[in-house]
């Protein structure tokens, strides 16, 4: 089994055309060519660690404040989940819990595992590791749902004295965490998982 890299070829990441490795730009789309994404691991680490640092304050600070009849009540993500549980809306509570709390953690865990194993040039279970990568790529975006919910509520609930809803710093931080983990996944080059295996095969 041969990879493009072993045959001195680079796959254009934009249009998929194969180019000889000495080419700087793709013959079809003129996109810049990189056999493997440059600084894939160091960028991945930097973005992931930034997301880890922001994860805690994003979950501890209030994401929105409901002002009703002169009383203000700030709520965090977890507080919102508990409130929904208390009101008996457990499917919704579960959805928010999974999207906002569980998925970001899962994604950070997968990223850390991928970065460490790739850095050590591990040859174990490449297909499973690729599938974990695909999972984190697929589910990561859905964590944005809570940011959208707060935006929709803030736009809609403007009832003067009766009730208003404001977004808070927690929402900004949380949106940043989601964006950072998405960028981290995008900067990781999944083909790096397979490179040590190719090398082993020929030794």
């Amino acid at each position: 089994m041969k990879t493009a890299a072993e045959l001195g070829l680079t796959r254009c990441s934009v249009c998929g055309t194969l180019n000889p490795v000495h080419r700087q730009r793709c013959s079809r789309c003129d996109g810049s060519l990189q056999q493997r994404r440059r600084h894939s691991l160091s960028h991945g680490w930097a973005l992931m660690l930034a997301a880890v640092i922001l994860y805690l304050p994003a979950n501890l600070l209030p994401v929105m404040t409901v002002t009703s009849l002169g009383q203000s009540e700030p709520s965090t993500i977890l507080g919102g989940v508990m409130l929904l549980l208390h009101e008996g809306m457990w499917p919704l509570a579960l959805l928010i819990f999974v999207a906002s709390i569980f998925l970001p953690l899962l994604k950070l865990g997968i990223l850390a595992g991928l970065l460490i194993s790739t850095q050590r040039r591990s040859t174990r279970r490449p297909l499973e590791r690729l599938q974990l990568y695909r999972l984190s790529e697929f589910v990561g975006r859905w964590s944005m749902v809570d940011v959208f919910v707060v935006a929709i509520l803030a736009a809609l609930v403007q009832l003067g004295n009766l009730a208003t809803i404001h977004g808070n710093l927690g929402t900004s931080l949380f949106a940043t965490v989601v964006a950072l983990t998405m960028l981290a996944v995008e900067s990781f080059d999944q083909r790096l998982i397979w490179d040590p295996i190719q090398k082993n095969e020929h030794e």
């Binding site: 041969k2 796959r11 998929g16 999944q190």
Partner: peptide, 14 residues
């Protein structure tokens, strides 16, 4: 000949 081949986006296999 390059247009007769394609590399896998996820594992680079030709």
């Amino acid at each position: 000949h390059l247009d007769d081949y394609i590399a896998c986006p996820d594992c680079d296999l030709l």
